[in-house]
Nucleic acid binder design. Structure first.
Lengths: 205, 205
DNA sequence: AATGTAAATAAACAGTTGTTCTCTATTTGT
DNA sequence: ACAAATAGAGAACAACTGTTTATTTACATT
């Protein structure tokens, strides 16, 4: 007998996609019987073989206690409502990118219609605007900003900071929201807007 | 045979409290066997009678599909992506409840394992703690708080506020996080903790 | 001393669930 | 055209789960 190939068969992929598409509608981990009904399969044993293959492929895992249904691996992580978590941002340094870009759950309310991503705040430079060390901010990727918006600004192509921006014809002023720091003045060429803050989240645990 | 009294027996209350205290630790709905082990009961049948009584009392409900464990009523509120949005809270007034309780999307990261709900902030009394007018806060329903936590406190049974709490044997101090306001001192009987802040969200649009 | 209630144990039952097996039909590759 | 791979049906099995019943123990009330 041959070793199993590590690629999925057509039907296995079909079933996996079904599980992915429907995982949101499962209140509890689905049963083989339930899945059979939904997939139109009449034999529990038939389905079991596919489920077993997917389990060995690491895409699925049985609910821990036995006899308690099947769920996708990292069930809650693959939610539709996730944005890429790109890294941490501290005043005066480049953005510290995450090696493996993770995902982070973000409610619809905290996003804009544009392309968004998430950064975590390092430091207290925005403390007076209610953005604290450790907070997550949702950034809409955008090159232009309106005056008064909080932006991810790249200074001299090196440092990245989160600041409130005021743009005049000949000058760009970045206001740190921290009474112990002073506004910084630049020429328009020195400052490049990378995105605008549209949401913020904090966990107290 | 007599009709069942509507009050719980000593043991029923004991078991109900156990379930309440431990619901956070259940990843899936617990089984009678599992509960037996945890409670030190050797017979599944013994426990079943108590569970049945609690179910009739409306405090517990069997997981929908049969053969899938037992959960507290409204257990799954914590497992969907939305939490009930109960109303707005302003310093010095009762909570302004929403007529029809809506739902609001809250990421897993911003919740605790306990029962949670969402309030929207009115006013600037927590501005120094980074909680602004219009922000949403995620509250874990809880009657006890640790010192330093931000709580929803009911004062004299009437006013509700969001404050940082310090509890001494003879005194409860509520600190508004706003330098223009002063800490308020109460006797322990005057202040009732209703919940603890575990998360916060803000939209900039 | 007699009685009733609460609580626990143990055994048994039926339905569910995951698993394994054999057998058959269909598709695929050479 | 033939063999291998894939897919499904159905049966059978053991473990688990909720439920019921009979029996015993402890305890408080009368």
């Amino acid at each position: 007998m041959k070793y199993e190939t590590e690629t999925l068969t057509r039907r296995q992929e079909e079933i996996y996609n079904f599980l992915r598409d429907h995982q949101e509608h499962f209140s509890t981990a689905p049963t083989l019987d339930e899945l059979c009904k939904m997939l139109g399969v009449k034999s529990r044993g038939s389905l079991h073989k596919h489920i077993q293959a997917l389990t060995e492929a690491g895409l699925i895992e049985p609910a821990e206690k036995r006899q308690r249904g099947i769920r996708l691996t990292s069930y809650e992580v693959n939610h539709v409502d996730e944005l890429p978590f790109l890294g941490r941002i501290a005043a005066g340094s480049p953005i510290e990118a995450i090696e493996i870009p993770e995902s982070i759950e973000v409610p619809q309310m905290l996003r804009s219609n544009g392309q968004c991503y998430v950064l975590q705040i390092r430091g207290d430079s925005m403390i007076d605007d209610g953005i604290f060390d450790g907070d997550w901010v949702v950034i809409e990727k955008r090159e232009q900003a309106r005056n008064g918006e909080i932006v991810v600004a790249l200074i001299e192509g090196r440092e990245a900071t989160l600041k409130r921006i005021e743009q005049c014809p000949n000058e760009v002023i970045l206001y740190p929201a921290n009474s112990t720091m002073k506004p910084m003045h630049f020429s328009p060429e020195q400052v490049q807007v990378q995105g605008v803050v549209v949401g913020q989240m904090r966990s107290y645990r």
